[in-house]
Design a protein around this nucleic acid. Structure first.
Length: 276
DNA sequence: AAGTGGACCTGCTAGC
DNA sequence: TGCTAGCAGGTCCACT
């Protein structure tokens, strides 16, 4: 589910409610992708630092508990969401973490359990450092540019769309936003990455940043599971030009949007507006 | 090294 | 109406 915009909307929600909150209790549900790596009890008494986003991860710094200085690295996988609840009801079968604090209960809900909650003593030490090690540039970092994209794609014969999904070049564009950015840039998702000219890299780098910014403004995309921390739904899914629109007319040229499969993921594009 | 495909898990939908 | 196959926003790992 959550791509960069949904994670960023979530991070902002956590910032509003949880900074300075003191952990009172921790409850775990079913196992997620990896074990948390510390005893839940050891987090009691810790105080929450301002949350930080790196790619699709959220880092929630914690200080002062028995576990000592460190934090939780959170990932929402395909179907996760985080809410801050003033009056939490009993946890359901898909609620896998409750961080009860004096400012509300942070609850992670994730039906598919591809998400993760991992304790680490810091972002730059194991295990967090390993999870973040291969991540590419942040799209809102000044270093993200067409020049960087151009350099990173030299010698890469893989198609541009699955390369974007991999996140080693630039983080944050998942299946929806990779499709949308390539449409906006007029680039065929099947084009081998190394064939992208410098001007087209400039355009694509700009469009990736633009579509992610627009989606953050829209509160993200809520296809089925995603909710912001206050339960609000995003509405970017109403604005997609290609994603999920197979057979429907292109808003630009009127031709039918096509769907192909790349790397076992659906890709949507306009065969007229997007060129090799 | 780069590329490809399978794995993880659950719920929903389209099609028979 | 009921079953089943296929699909879903991510990413790690093993294999060629």
């Amino acid at each position: 589910m959550p791509e960069l915009p949904e994670v960023e909307v979530t991070r902002r929600g956590l910032s509003q409610h949880l900074i300075g909150a003191r952990v009172q209790a921790v409850r775990l549900g079913k196992p997620l992708r990896w074990p948390m790596g510390c005893a839940p009890q050891a987090l009691v008494g810790a105080v929450v630092s301002p949350p930080v986003r790196r790619g699709k991860y959220i880092w929630l710094g914690l200080s002062g508990g028995a576990q000592g200085q460190g934090g939780l690295l959170l990932h929402l996988g395909m179907s996760g969401s985080l809410q801050v609840l003033a009056q939490p009801g009993p946890p359901g079968p898909h609620d896998h973490l409750d961080l009860v604090t004096d400012q509300g209960t942070l609850r992670l809900t994730d039906p598919r359990r591809f998400g993760a909650v991992v304790w680490s003593a810091g972002l730059d030490v194991l295990p967090a450092s390993k999870l973040l090690a291969r991540l590419g540039l942040e799209p809102f970092d000044a270093a993200w540019s067409g020049a960087h994209l151009h350099a990173a794609t030299r010698g890469r014969r893989v198609a541009i769309k699955p390369l974007l999904l991999g996140g080693e070049v630039v983080v944050g564009a998942g299946n929806i936003y990779a499709c949308e950015a390539l449409f906006r840039a007029g680039i065929d998702p099947r084009l081998a990455a190394h064939r992208l000219s410098k001007p087209r890299c400039d355009r694509l780098a700009d469009e990736i940043r633009a579509v992610l910014a627009i989606a953050i403004e829209a509160g993200g995309s809520s296809l089925k599971d995603f909710k912001a921390t206050d339960g609000a739904q995003g509405h970017f899914q109403l604005m997609t030009q290609v994603y999920g629109r197979e057979g429907q007319p292109c808003h630009h040229c009127g031709g039918a949007i096509r769907k192909v499969v790349q790397g076992q993921r659906a890709t949507y594009f306009c065969p007229t507006c997007q060129r090799r």
